[in-house]
Simulated scan of single mutants.
Amino acid sequence: MELNGYRLLLPEGTLDYFDLVDVKESVNEVVFYLEEKNIVPEKYTDQDTESKGFYDPVIVRDFPLRGKKVFLNIRRRRWLLKKHNEYISR
């Protein structure tokens, strides 16, 4: 599925931090699936980190689009600070 056209429908700045990985469209709704990019927060770039997957997705309801409900299914990433054995996120 080509996702480039859908990029124009997302809130401004969303794709600075997230990748659009899928879109599911049905008769009544459109669901955008977003995953946070694997870019460590600036505050921790000088520390040894390891990506540890994602938190549970958060579903945000956005403005309707041509009479369809719009949802953003957002998966935020988490990293492990190896030195402190502590999880961080953006």
Score class of each variant (00 low, 15 high):
Asp19Phe: 11
Arg76Asp: 06
Asp56Met: 11
Trp79Leu: 04
Ser89Arg: 00
Arg76Val: 05
Leu34Trp: 09
Tyr6Phe: 11
Leu3Trp: 02
Glu12Ser: 13
Leu9Ala: 07
Gly13Arg: 06
Glu50Arg: 15
Arg78Val: 06
Arg75Ile: 03
Leu9Phe: 12
Gln47Phe: 12
Val70Gly: 02
His84Leu: 09
Asp22Tyr: 00
Arg77Gln: 11
Gly5Trp: 00
Phe54Trp: 10
Asp22Ser: 11
Pro11Cys: 00
Val60Ser: 05
Pro64Asn: 14
Leu72Thr: 05
Asp56Ala: 12
Val70Arg: 07
Val58Glu: 14
Ser26Cys: 01
Leu65Pro: 01
Ile74Gln: 06
Lys52Pro: 07
Phe32Tyr: 15
Asp62Lys: 00
Ser89Val: 02
Val40Asp: 10
Phe18Asn: 10
Lys37Pro: 12
Pro57Cys: 07
Leu8Ala: 12
Leu72Tyr: 10
Asp19Met: 09
Phe54Tyr: 15
Asp16Arg: 12
Asp22Gln: 09
Glu2Trp: 02
Glu42Gln: 15
Leu10Gly: 05
Asn4Arg: 11
Pro41Arg: 13
Tyr6Glu: 04
Met1Arg: 11
Arg75Asp: 01
Lys69Ile: 08
Lys52Ala: 07
Arg90Pro: 03
Glu12Gly: 01
Asn28Pro: 01
Thr14Asn: 01
Thr49Glu: 06
Val70Lys: 06
Ser51Asn: 13
Leu65Glu: 12
Asn28Cys: 07
Lys82Met: 08
Lys69His: 12
Gly67Trp: 03
Leu34Pro: 09
Ser51Lys: 11
Val21Leu: 10
Lys83Met: 06
Lys43Trp: 14
Thr14Trp: 05
Ser51Cys: 11
Arg90Asn: 01
Asn4Lys: 13
Asp48Cys: 11
Phe71Cys: 02
Thr49Phe: 05
Glu42His: 13
Arg66His: 10
Val60Cys: 01
Arg90Thr: 00
Lys83Glu: 15
